[in-house]
């Protein structure tokens, strides 16, 4: 068990963390590159930057959204994100691991903050899951991925909570710890290749949707792809 834990803490963590960081950089780079290429091809070179910025702003800090129909759902989503981001980065135990291996450290959450944020995140995630199932409109918009992601994100939070707060036997503790680490690492690996990539791509999405409007449907590319005749000359 110890060796497994050490393996998950050492080489496996390095592998997954590197995959996440570089994967995100890669995706950001590819997106910017593709956007630039698309921009070069457009006839209409005007870009509504103000609109893009205000929309992105709204997107990242969605306070305006609170006025619309799904108020509760939006609030929960914001709160969920706060816990989701802050807890893994500023948890004392995580920082301790960094300090031991590379020698860097930063400010940490106090125990009670960590406790309440974790509890909150778990509750919000569960309620979001229920929300996706219950509210008709969201249910229609949801894909399988969305449900799975909520569940996957729940695993490290629940196991971490168990490890930090409940009294369990050493064997159970180690088991939960292992699940905690492995699920966290699985999330790391999946981030750059799934919808969670929006954590870095968020600022770009508005730019890209504006760009996409500049290409009316039925352009040559679309024809080719729909016809499944790659390489055909139009």
């Amino acid at each position: 068990m110890e060796t497994l834990l050490n393996f998950a803490r050492g080489p496996l963590f390095r592998l997954c963390f590197a995959l996440m960081v570089l994967g995100l950089i890669r995706i950001l780079f590819l997106d910017v590159w593709a956007a630039l290429k698309a921009f070069r091809k457009t006839d209409d070179k005007r870009m509504p930057w103000k609109l893009i910025f205000s929309r992105t702003w709204e997107w990242i800090f969605p306070f305006k959204r609170l006025k619309n129909n799904f108020q509760l759902y939006s609030v929960i989503s914001i709160l969920f994100h706060i816990g989701l981001i802050i807890v893994p980065i500023f948890l004392f135990a995580h920082i301790q691991l960094w300090k031991e291996s590379v020698g860097i450290s930063w400010i940490s959450l106090s125990y009670s903050w960590a406790f309440w944020l974790t509890t909150g995140t778990i509750i919000f995630a569960v309620s979001m899951f229920i929300g996706r199932l219950v509210i008709k409109q969201t249910k229609l918009l949801s894909r399988k991925q969305d449900y799975l992601w909520l569940l996957l994100l729940l695993i490290p939070f629940v196991t971490g909570f168990v490890c930090a707060n409940l009294t369990v036997s050493p064997a159970t503790y180690h088991f939960f710890m292992l699940v905690h680490m492995l699920s966290g690492e699985l999330i790391f690996v999946l981030i750059p290749f799934s919808k969670i990539a929006h954590c870095v791509l968020a600022p770009l999405s508005q730019v890209i949707s504006v760009l996409a409007w500049k290409f009316p449907p039925m352009t040559d590319d679309d024809i080719c792809t729909t016809l499944n005749k790659k390489g055909a000359k139009v």
Partner: peptide, 18 residues
């Protein structure tokens, strides 16, 4: 000239020829 168009992961938009 006619390979698969590139794809943006966040907005799910196809961006033409890459």
């Amino acid at each position: 000239p006619h390979t698969l168009p590139s794809f943006d992961y966040s907005s799910k938009t196809w961006l033409g020829n890459p």
